[in-house]
């Protein structure tokens, strides 16, 4: 799908245009409100939330809740803050994204430039695997991770995310490489380059844009995952699970401000990616509806 070349704009009167702007701004407010609530209340002392107005700016500004969420808040039974879980998430995300992206690139290359009988069926099987409800694999996955000694470990989570991410990365690269003329590969073959050299010297140098898309997509997905983290995280739980434990904990006073600070901490990496590379993020989302 192409972006921003033409408008289907209609000619409208002044009042209609004012109304259009009004509606658009109201929606902007709707989308921004929760973010505002999170940020504003994460900078308030707790009594300002319990005794005050959630939509108001802080009267006393404090970063205490942030520090607490990061290093001292009670997560489950340990007062560790979210920091160790944040580190878990990083340790899990980086290899998972790297491996699944590399596999996706090479798969996409094969599925477009070295086609063979039945390749479309294989791709179809990979593609469908992106959309399965993961509940269908939870039980055997738990069993298998236990058997191979990866249960409750970061390598286990990496494996899970690679397995269920490779379909998407393959889809991205396949659609991207499909647009690269096959004559390029033929020319390189005649020039004497083999399978790996063609990939390394011809295709890969062209893959910058799609690699950004694939990395962002995988990063966002793996970072935001909760189901696998909760099911197989064990002692190596990722950030999302820790945040949920922090918020749902039933002991003691509910420290809303700390919860909000924690939520922002959990959202920060993906939000930064979105702000820095929003264009590619959207392209990744779009490719999720299969069309390249």
């Amino acid at each position: 799908m192409s972006v921003a070349t033409q408008d289907t704009a209609i000619s409208t009167g002044k009042i209609t245009r004012a109304l259009i702007y009004l509606v658009l701004l109201l929606f902007a407010l709707f989308y921004l409100l929760p973010l505002f609530v999170m940020v504003a209340n994460s900078l308030k002392p707790l009594d300002e939330i319990t005794g005050g107005n959630m939509l108001a700016l802080p009267q006393t500004w404090t970063i205490e809740p942030w520090l607490a969420a990061w290093s001292t808040a009670q997560i489950g039974v340990e007062p560790t803050g979210l920091r160790p879980y944040f580190i878990n998430s990083i340790l899990m995300v980086v290899p998972a994204v790297a491996i699944s992206t590399i596999l996706g690139a090479i798969n996409g290359y094969i599925l477009t430039k070295w086609r063979f009988k039945g390749d479309n069926i294989l791709f179809g099987l990979m593609l469908f695997s992106c959309f399965i409800p993961f509940q269908i694999v939870l039980i055997p996955m738990a069993t298998v991770l236990g058997k191979i000694g990866l249960a409750g470990s970061i390598p286990g989570l990496i494996l899970v995310h690679v397995v269920y991410g490779v379909g998407f990365t393959t889809l991205y690269y396949r659609n991207y490489y499909a647009a690269v003329p096959s004559e390029l590969v033929r020319a390189a073959m005649i020039d004497g380059a083999g399978f790996f050299r063609i990939f390394w010297r011809i295709l890969l140098p062209l893959s910058g844009p799609i690699t950004v898309v694939s990395v962002i997509w995988q990063f966002t997905n793996v970072w935001n995952d909760f189901l696998f983290g909760a099911s197989f995280g064990g002692t190596s739980q990722p950030m999302t699970v820790a945040l949920n434990n922090l918020v749902q904990s039933s002991t003691g006073v509910k420290e809303y401000n700390v919860h909000f600070a924690g939520a922002i901490l959990a959202a920060l990496p993906t939000l930064i990616v979105y702000i820095v590379a929003g264009r590619y993020f959207v392209r990744g989302l779009m490719a999720g509806s299969v069309k390249g």
Binding site: P181, E183, L184, R186, A187, A188, M189, I190, D191, G192, A193, R201, I202, P205, L206
Partner: peptide, 27 residues
């Protein structure tokens, strides 16, 4: 193909977009 001692000019030219003209020709 690379061992038949042939050279081919393609309809789309199939120039490697990431290489310079010189690199293309000597690849």
């Amino acid at each position: 193909p690379s061992k038949r001692n042939i050279a081919m000019v393609f309809q789309s030219y199939a120039l490697y977009p990431n290489m310079t003209v010189g690199q293309n020709m000597t690849f």
